[in-house]
């Protein structure tokens, strides 16, 4: 059956899926993220938006320990990442990996089981079955044995989503999931993400297209090195906050 679980509602209402406090990130001598506070709740879908160089990807990567934090504290479900890695899934930019890699769709999805298998654990038929269930969930059953380079951009993004599902993640952090996919594919991806959110997962995505924010997301974090605004789209995604995020010139993009 479909491998999703409902998250205990009590926990999801009280403890944020992700809380960030005072997070700063620096490369060389430039501060790219400065003293950012943010909270992301289970059952919500948040867009991190801001101009190029605003530190969106850096915020995501520092949160996940991929790049070092200069300062600040990060907690997933009230705990440090190290203790609950399986519940936290990173969905990287599609362009970040080599799609010519000798791997089939199922091989990539099975990578999601690393937390369970470890280095020496034996791969059992039950693991393969779970991977296939996750692949079915994102609609790629017919492609499970294809080499990943033979997929379209949207299908590749769905492979990453299936990998996140395979690790049984309760929060997904996506870096520009819609980059380089066509409109129809984008809609299909959003549908999958909405379904995951409605099951109680927290979805956090770096996003570029301001026009689609209200349709796709229920929360926003406006970022330009520092936090400009945060909250439900209805209250935080305002003309004024956008002007402050993008500068007055940038507001014309909306």
């Amino acid at each position: 059956m479909i491998p999703h679980r409902q998250i205990a509602p009590v926990a999801s209402l009280t403890v944020p899926a992700l809380s960030i406090s005072g997070l700063s990130v620096a490369y060389d001598d430039a501060i790219v993220v400065g003293d950012v506070d943010a909270r992301f709740m289970s059952g919500t879908m948040t867009a991190i938006i801001g101009p190029n160089g605003a530190g969106k990807s850096s915020l995501l990567k520092a949160t996940l320990g991929i790049v070092p934090k200069l300062a600040g504290h990060v907690a997933f479900f009230g705990e440090p990442l190290e203790t609950i890695r399986d519940r936290v899934a990173y969905v990287p930019q599609r362009a970040g990996v080599d799609w010519d890699f000798p791997a089939r769709v199922i091989d990539v999805v099975l990578m999601g089981l690393y937390g369970e298998l470890g280095i020496f654990g034996r791969l059992r038929p039950s693991h393969e079955k779970r991977a296939m269930d996750c692949i079915a969930r994102v609609g790629l059953t017919d492609f499970a044995r294809r080499q990943i380079g033979a997929l379209s951009g949207g299908q590749q993004q769905r492979v990453f989503l299936a990998r996140a599902l395979a690790q049984r993640a309760d929060i997904l952090l996506l870096d520009e999931p819609f980059a380089g996919v066509d409109a129809a594919t984008e809609k299909a991806l959003v549908q999958v993400l909405h379904a995951l959110r409605d099951e109680g997962r927290a979805i956090v995505a770096v996003h570029h297209d301001l026009a689609t924010v209200p349709a796709y997301f229920d929360h926003v974090l406006l970022l330009n090195r520092r936090r400009i605004a945060e909250g439900p789209v209805a209250t935080a995604f305002t003309e004024k906050a956008l002007a402050e995020t993008y500068g007055t010139r940038g507001a014309a993009h909306v």
Binding site: L64, Y90, F101, V108, Y114, L117, G118, I119, Q167
Partner: peptide
């Protein structure tokens, strides 16, 4: 061969590997 899993994980997607504790 013994350490093939972490080696492959990092070779394919180093960022994701880092989030899995590798």
């Amino acid at each position: 061969i013994l350490f093939r899993r972490p080696l492959l994980l990092v070779a394919f997607d180093a960022g994701y590997a880092a989030t899995r504790g590798v």
